[in-house]
């Protein structure tokens, strides 16, 4: 029962998204022009490569995000049984968060959140 429902959902998703894309391709007015491939159709012609290297700061933010992402994942099982585990569980979670909070404090002190 469940599997068939998922399958129907899957097919409906493909039909709805694919159908929309197909209808737009069939119905929309076409205009082929070399300028259509430019980043700015009505702007100046770009000279040389337009690629700019991203700042390393983004990577640091991504890593910090990942760490707190993992922390959140570990908070979910606790949140589900919060009332059941009571005070003991709460203390354990507080220890967990405080240790990670130290890391956040370190990041703040080192200026990881400053955008230079």
């Amino acid at each position: 029962m469940g599997a068939e429902a998922i399958l129907v959902f899957f097919i409906a998703g493909i039909v709805l998204v694919g159908g929309g894309a197909l209808a737009s391709k069939l119905l929309s007015p076409k205009s082929t022009n070399k300028d259509k491939w430019e980043p700015y159709e009505s702007g100046m012609k770009t000279i040389g490569p337009t690629w700019v290297q991203f700042k390393v700061g983004y990577f640091l933010i991504a890593i910090l995000f990942l760490i707190f992402d993992v922390e959140t994942i570990f908070l979910v099982p606790w949140a589900v049984v919060m009332k059941k585990v009571g005070l003991v569980g709460f203390v354990e979670i507080v220890i967990f968060i405080v240790i990670l909070g130290l890391g956040l404090l370190y990041a703040y002190k080192k200026g990881a959140f400053k955008w230079e």
Partner: peptide
């Protein structure tokens, strides 16, 4: 193990900051 995970994550965070900075 649950509490040790937080220490592991702390170590990762400090290492990431040292390398990136």
């Amino acid at each position: 193990p649950f509490e040790v995970i937080s220490i592991l994550l702390l170590a990762v965070m400090v290492a990431a900051i040292i390398i990136a900075k």
